[in-house]
Simulated scan of single mutants.
Amino acid sequence: MEILVCIKQVPDDAAEIRLKADGTPDLDGVAQVVNAFDTYALEMATRLKEAVGGEITVISVGGEGVRDALKTCLAVGAQHAFLLTDPAFEGSDSLGKARILAAAKAKLEEKSGKPYDLIFCGLEATDKATGQTGAQLAELLNLPLITNLTDISYENGTVTAKQETDFGYNLIDSAAPCVVTVNTPAYTPRYPTIKSKLAAKKMPIDPISLADLGEGLGKVGEKAALTRTVRFAEPPQKVAGVKIKEETCEDSARRAVAMMVEAKAL
């Protein structure tokens, strides 16, 4: 089985990010990591590969700094990695990036002579959280799409996916090839070992440029973007709570009720 996993490098979502004077996020000193949902997608793909055999290729759109994220992916299950990098790609919105990923898939299949059976994407990116790229990629590739996966299996050319919904789970069958987007599974992504990190350092990450993808790519970059960010806003600061310290529990309860009445919360 040939599996393609699309990943994105994002600021660490555990960091507290503030806005600079110009209203843009201050990312100085913030670690850049593999998007959390993409780590789930890679782990799910790796478990599937271990069950049925095959190889995993990871690709990402970005600058040279994304090589670190791709090296991490090579250390936890991927066999091949490619960096889609070109100044012309900068400022692409989700549709532009989907176009780049679709063109790269075709290019890699042409080069290897092996079509991809499954294309994995994370449910959304933690930096902008639009959740659109996976669906747009499926549309551009004219492939079936299954979203919000928490588990997957494959047998005789058929994918069976466990899809999370607000009311439980659906089991969905689809013929391969198809595109899937991955939510949080019941298991956690594996960590690289020292041995796997050293092995990943020796593995190549070939760049793919605009020229490599050819004229059929379509419009990409900031000028071609159909969406734009109007502004950034920090989340509201948490208001400090009020401690009620009366002599007895009954007095504390009366005081709490009186405060809620005063605030028109009752």
Rank of each mutant, 00 (worst) to 15 (best):
T85E: 06
R18E: 14
I119C: 00
A14T: 13
L70I: 05
L83N: 04
P87T: 08
L19E: 04
I119P: 03
I119K: 00
G53R: 00
K71Q: 13
T85W: 01
F37L: 02
G113A: 08
D28K: 15
V66G: 05
I100N: 02
V66W: 02
A104K: 02
L70A: 07
E90M: 10
P87R: 08
D38V: 11
I100E: 00
R18P: 02
V66E: 00
A104W: 05
Q32L: 09
L84K: 03
V61S: 09
T57C: 04
C73M: 12
L84W: 01
M44R: 04
A21P: 03
G29A: 09
C73Y: 01
L83V: 08
D22M: 14
T24D: 08
V66S: 11
E55F: 06
E90A: 15
T24M: 14
E110V: 10
A103R: 01
A81R: 01
E16V: 14
R47G: 09
R18W: 13
A45C: 12
D28P: 03
A104F: 14
D117G: 15
V66A: 13
G23N: 02
T39S: 13
P87V: 13
A104H: 02
T24C: 13
E90K: 13
G53W: 00
L101E: 00
D86H: 06
D38M: 07
A51S: 12
E90W: 01
D28H: 12
L19Q: 03
S60E: 04
S92I: 09
K71S: 15
T72G: 14
V52S: 14
A31N: 08
L42R: 02
L83F: 04
A15K: 02
S60V: 07
A78T: 08
I56S: 03
A75E: 06
K49T: 12
E16I: 10
L74F: 04
A51V: 13
K71V: 13
G54V: 04
A21L: 09
L19R: 06
D68E: 12
G29T: 05
A103Q: 03
L84A: 06
K20E: 14
K71Y: 10
G23L: 13
T24Q: 07
L27S: 12
G63N: 06
L19Y: 00
L83Q: 01
T57F: 05
A78D: 07
S94F: 01
E109M: 06
A103W: 02
K111F: 06
A14H: 10
A45Q: 04
D86E: 01
L95F: 15
A21I: 12
K97Q: 13
G29R: 08
L27N: 04
A14Q: 10
F82Y: 11
G63R: 00
K49G: 10
V52Y: 01
I17M: 03
D22T: 10
T39Y: 01
R47C: 08
A31L: 10
G23A: 15
D28W: 05
R67Y: 08
I100T: 07
Y116A: 09
E90R: 07
A14R: 11
Q32G: 14
F89A: 02
K111N: 14
L101Y: 09
G29F: 14
